[in-house]
């Protein structure tokens, strides 16, 4: 290699490079790097926003599901309660009806009893008045003679004693 004068190339390289560097820094690298950075930031932000939106959607979805599950549970509970109430009502109605029936039967029985007693009492009265009439008739017949009268009195007295 021919070693030509070193100062020429050293001088010009230094000068040209420094000027070139300053020009490039101001007019090329700053705008280019700035634009690239800006775009990267905006892409990152957009991706982040999308990610957040996705997360929000997920949250919303899970919230909805939770709400739905709660509603379902509540509905089930309400149905269960309703069923219980229904059953209780039926059971109550049944027992009341039974009680009522029993009461009615009881009162029926009581009234039958009292009717019966009254009937019996009347029957007794009838029977007693009938027997008195019979006895009267008989006595009239019997007591047509004295002996028979005395006998009867004695007999009656004897009965009374026994009583």
């Amino acid at each position: 290699m021919n070693f030509t004068s070193p100062e020429s190339l050293v001088f010009w390289t230094t000068l040209i490079f420094v000027v070139f560097f300053l020009l490039m820094r101001k007019f090329a690298w700053k705008p280019i790097l700035g634009a690239v950075k800006g775009r990267e930031d905006s892409i990152n932000n957009a991706l982040l926003a999308a990610e957040n939106a996705k997360k929000d959607m997920q949250n919303l979805k899970s919230d909805n599901e939770k709400l739905l599950a709660e509603a379902r549970a509540e509905r089930d509970l309400m149905m269960k309660e309703a069923r219980e109430i229904k059953e209780k009502m039926i059971a109550d109605a049944k027992s009341e009806a039974q009680a009522q029936g029993e009461k009615m039967i009881e009162s029926a029985k009581a009234s039958i009893e009292s009717e019966k007693n009254a009937a019996m009492a009347e029957l007794k009265n009838q029977v007693s008045s009938l027997s008195l009439e019979i006895a009267e008739t008989l006595l009239k017949g019997e007591l047509s003679n004295k002996e028979a009268q005395t006998k009867l009195v004695e007999k009656m007295l004897g009965d009374a004693k026994l009583n």
Binding site: T4, S5, E7, S8, L9, F11, W12, T13
Partner: peptide, 12 residues
Amino acid sequence: LDFSITKNVFSM
């Protein structure tokens, strides 16, 4: 001292 615009300076 030689500060010529040489072939290399031209190329640069």
